[in-house]
């Protein structure tokens, strides 16, 4: 790594990066373990008293696990559907003649550029027409549509990189085209699928505006909506908001910790090789 000053600079950089990324969030969620007076204390109390009051009230009073469960279904469902549709479309685009593939892909990507606020109204009317308001599929399908463009793009680039010979070999062995896609191409593109899946999951887990409008039935509301509804007209329940935020974010942090290497390699192995 070079000379000593370089090394010190580097360590300083690492420290800075970690602080930049973590400190604000850590400070915020520490409020979840504090009581109300500690939360608003100046000078700040760095060490929380580890009161569990905020947690217990988010769980008992606001039924946070219930929102969490809805989020799991919606985000999980959206990810599954997006990956299946995205893989099929991505494969087709990767094998389609270049000109057509380019045009189709451009069209799909243009879809991703429209402001979401404007599509909310028509989507809502369509869902009402189908009777899908306040249902899981009513939220899953819009999420699929919103995440598909990026997923298709990532997967198309990924599949294109797969040598066609592999596929030909499978075909010679008696596989159908779909069979070769499922048995040969998909296993080999696991990193790309993985990246697309994580991007979709995080999006669906975090989306808030559509969910607020579509899900008014408390039995179906997802986590971000739950947090948005926390804000009462009384004092701001910082402790409870922080507790709920921690509970919402924890699964994602867990995923990131677990899969950080894959997220990085998945992206670089395929999509973004400029």
């Amino acid at each position: 790594m070079g000379k000593l000053p370089n090394k010190i600079l580097f360590i300083l950089g690492v420290f800075l990066a970690a602080a930049f990324s973590l400190a604000p969030f850590l400070w915020f969620v520490s409020a979840a373990f504090k009581d109300q007076t500690q939360i608003t204390a100046i000078p700040p109390e760095w060490l929380p008293s580890f009161s569990v009051e905020a947690f217990s009230s988010t769980v008992t009073q606001h039924g946070i696990f219930h929102y969490l469960w809805n989020s799991v279904i919606v985000a999980g469902g959206a990810t599954l559907v997006t990956i299946i549709l995205g893989a099929l479309a991505g494969y087709a685009l990767a094998r389609l003649s270049r000109g057509w593939a380019q045009i189709t892909l451009m069209g799909i990507l243009a879809c991703a550029m429209f402001p979401q606020i404007a599509i909310v109204g028509p989507v809502w009317r369509f869902l009402k027409f189908m009777g899908w308001l306040n249902t899981y599929q009513g939220l899953i399908l819009p999420y699929v549509a919103l995440t598909l463009p990026l997923a298709i793009w990532i997967l198309a680039v990924f599949f294109r990189e797969m040598p066609e010979e592999l596929e030909s070999a499978a075909l010679v062995d008696g596989c159908t085209r779909l069979g070769s896609l499922v048995r040969v191409i998909i296993p080999l593109s696991a990193p790309g699928l993985f990246t697309a899946a994580i991007l979709t999951f995080i999006y669906a887990w975090n989306e808030f505006f559509l969910a607020l409008l579509i899900m008014t039935d408390p039995a179906r509301q997802t986590m971000p909506v739950g947090i948005a509804l926390f804000q009462g007209e009384h004092t701001i329940p910082w402790g409870e908001i922080a507790a709920a935020s921690l509970i919402t974010t924890a699964p994602l942090i867990f995923m990131v910790l677990l899969f950080q290497r894959r997220i990085v390699t998945g992206l670089s192995a395929g999509a973004i090789k400029g």
Binding site: L22, I227, S245, T248, T249, V256, R261, I263
Partner: peptide
Amino acid sequence: GALRACVLIPWAIPTVVSAQMWRYL
């Protein structure tokens, strides 16, 4: 690996949460 995970955390946090967080900070 640990640093990589740290850096990815802000990106995974819902905007609703980070907006509340900054309001607090």
